[in-house]
């Protein structure tokens, strides 16, 4: 069953079309990498799938629940507030700049949403948080505050924060673009481990070797449209589009 089904999504800002007829399916347990030049609409697509931006037309379905639909007359309609909230909890998003809550400790960053939103007990939430912190190799940082963390640690906390709500799919918006090469490896290792556990993930990235190693499928976007998608190996070794060849020339993978 597809976790994400986006069909024919259009979005424009102030008359500039940033997404043109974009469709994307993500199946359970699959890791999809979205690559492409800056400004190609990759991040916008993720933000649409996470309800941070409303689309102009098209349809998005998450775990079989319709988030937004466009009828034959072209009227684009979002689901009601309760349904959108339910869908919101099915998707997690990890940001390029972490966006941890600075006034909360690492532990509270991870437990606050489960307690406030899912009404977990403090004990449940904390047990889960400690478990996730251990997985992220950050057990000793539970009581630290975000300003005391390195970029790599902050990004791992933000991954733990997203996982604490047990989303059906986790999105990453250039998760390593704010990090140095060493810390980048650290985050990519975490994502790789999640892939081994069959976590469904969509990763917008400029790390080509990572996309090739970890992604089951690669989607190449340019100018607001999906130019080509397919198995990682195929895209990197034998792409059919000239544009991809041109783009990949700059990377040695």
């Amino acid at each position: 069953m597809p976790v994400i089904e986006a069909k024919s999504v259009y979005k424009s800002f102030d008359g500039v079309t940033v997404l043109k007829d974009v469709s994307l399916n993500v199946n359970e347990g699959e890791v999809v990498a979205i690559i492409g030049p800056s400004g190609s609409g990759k991040s916008t697509l993720l933000r649409c799938l996470n309800q941070l931006i409303n689309i102009d037309s098209g349809s998005i379905t998450v775990c079989g629940m319709s988030m937004v639909n466009t009828d034959e007359k072209g009227i684009c309609k979002y689901a009601d507030k309760a349904a959108l909230h339910k869908i919101q909890l099915k998707t997690g998003l990890v940001f390029q700049n972490f966006h941890l809550f600075p006034h909360y400790s690492v532990l509270k960053n991870i437990t606050d949403a489960p307690m406030q939103i899912l009404k977990m007990t403090k004990e449940e939430a904390q047990n889960k948080a400690y478990e996730l912190l251990e997985k992220m190799n950050l057990s000793d940082k539970a009581n630290a505050y975000p300003y005391q963390l390195s970029g790599g640690q902050a990004q791992r906390v933000s991954i733990a924060r997203a996982l604490a709500l047990s989303p059906a799919v986790l999105f990453f918006d250039e998760p390593t673009s704010a990090l140095d090469p060493e810390l980048t490896v650290e985050i990519l290792r975490v994502i790789k481990n999640l892939a081994k556990e069959k976590m469904t993930m969509v990763v917008v990235t400029h790390e080509m070797s990572f996309a090739r190693d970890v992604a089951d499928r690669v989607v190449f976007m340019d100018n607001g449209a999906v130019i080509e998608e397919g198995a990682a190996e195929k895209i990197f070794t034998n792409p059919s589009s000239e544009r991809i060849k041109q783009f990949l020339q700059h990377f040695s993978v």
Binding site: N50, Q51, L52, H85, Q88, L89, T91, G92, L93, F95, N97, H99, L100, F101, A113, Q116, I117, S158, R161, A162, L165
Partner: peptide, 17 residues
């Protein structure tokens, strides 16, 4: 920063929360 609102939104916080 806008990112604080966005992070809260994707975690399911309501506007008032």
């Amino acid at each position: 920063p806008q990112g604080q609102y966005e992070a809260a939104k994707v975690l399911g916080y309501s506007k008032s929360k």
